[in-house]
Design a protein around this nucleic acid. Sequence first.
DNA 1: CATTAACCTTCTACTATAATAGGTTAGTGG
DNA 2: CCACTAACCTATTATAGTAGAAGGTTAATG
Lengths: 138, 138
Amino acid sequence: MVVSTKGRYALRVVIDIAKYGKNGYVTLSGIAERQGLSEKYLESIIKMLVQKGLVIGLRGKNGGYKLAKDAKEITAWDIISVTENDFYVVACMDPNAPMCDRVDKCVTLPMWKDFSVEMEKFFKKYTIAELAEKELAQ
Amino acid sequence: MVVSTKGRYALRVVIDIAKYGKNGYVTLSGIAERQGLSEKYLESIIKMLVQKGLVIGLRGKNGGYKLAKDAKEITAWDIISVTENDFYVVACMDPNAPMCDRVDKCVTLPMWKDFSVEMEKFFKKYTIAELAEKELAQ
DNA sequence: CATTAACCTTCTACTATAATAGGTTAGTGG
DNA sequence: CCACTAACCTATTATAGTAGAAGGTTAATG
């Protein structure tokens, strides 16, 4: 699978927060219930979003989660690339990977590179604001 | 990783066959040596290509592998989609998966669908013939 | 100060990846 | 016809990621 449940659920979580968090914080239990997903599993997913600064959590009564930025400023790419743990087209595209010794003669490398660019461009087209609006319109 | 070593190596194998199999069969040991990859591992990868009818194997002396079709008729998509075992953008895009009950109200589904189409189109642009020629030109 | 809800650590079952080992079958040439 | 060759086939392994579940801790709030 190109995108696992982590990326897929993370997107639904963020859209849910955008949709229901217009005035205040959205609780994890609320998200889990509306989305029909395990609270505990979502917790581990939302944790990544908090740590990367995409979502802000507040403890205690009336606490919950809110977006760190305006929903218009967050794209599907932001969410997916952060939650999918090696979101590279191929291993060679991982900047932390040891440099391949075939770099200069590899004919498939330009293809992988082009696709990486395409993929990033594609998912950056979708903002959380637009996706949340679509849900509200239904 | 979007594409694992299986898909990546499979592509290199097929390009190698296209390049060195102009007149006759190409042996697995030859491919493994030229590509600097494990013969045993490549065997398991090439097996998938044989079973899917993309490559033909011949046993015995002067045996080896050859492409089942003209290299112009085989695309990168053919190779990757056959060797990557769940090459779907998300689980919902797997035709064998149980139908999701959110299909008609899911706002992310159109995005996943569009990306699936884009991805397939992208990799279908690259034929094995073109990739093999690029290698020869170097 | 009790309640609430996020935060944190650990654990588990399952599956895929990335191989390795060793034996079997089928063509070819002498 | 027989030895050689090279594909074919089955089984096993280590490692890591996915998809959760369990239970306790910390910090706001009223």
